[in-house]
Amino acid sequence: MILGLYNYWIVVVLMMIGLYIIIAHGNLIKKIVGLNIFQTSVFIFYISIGNVEGGTAPIWGEGITLYSNPLPHVLILTAIVVGIATTALGLALAVRLKEAYGSIEEDDIQAMDDQKTDNKHC
């Protein structure tokens, strides 16, 4: 059944929502939210790969023979915490940009930069 692939489709839809937000929105904070959604879709992708039908959580127990794959869990567990640390770094950059330019809209910052280089040429 082709419907058995539904987990990948959910991941693709989420990933594309994230990508669209990153491309279409000029606001830097919104771009970071978009990146977060993109990131979570990758997390879900890994975890769904690790899932085994009828398996249990990978904690050893008496009489249990079928476990989920622990490897993707490990990778994603650390990736989530690294993700929040890097998100914080991105937000910090956005805050500093706001202080320097008075705006976190991509267009405004670009316009100000262009103006600066034009003035230098003249």
Binding site: F43, I47, S48, N51, A57, I59, S68, P72, L77, I80
Partner: peptide, 16 residues
């Protein structure tokens, strides 16, 4: 993540 048996990951994601 809980539904997909990844309890450790769910734990982290809930707090983060």
């Amino acid at each position: 993540f809980v539904v997909m048996d990844a309890v450790d990951v769910a734990f982290t994601e809930a707090s983060v």
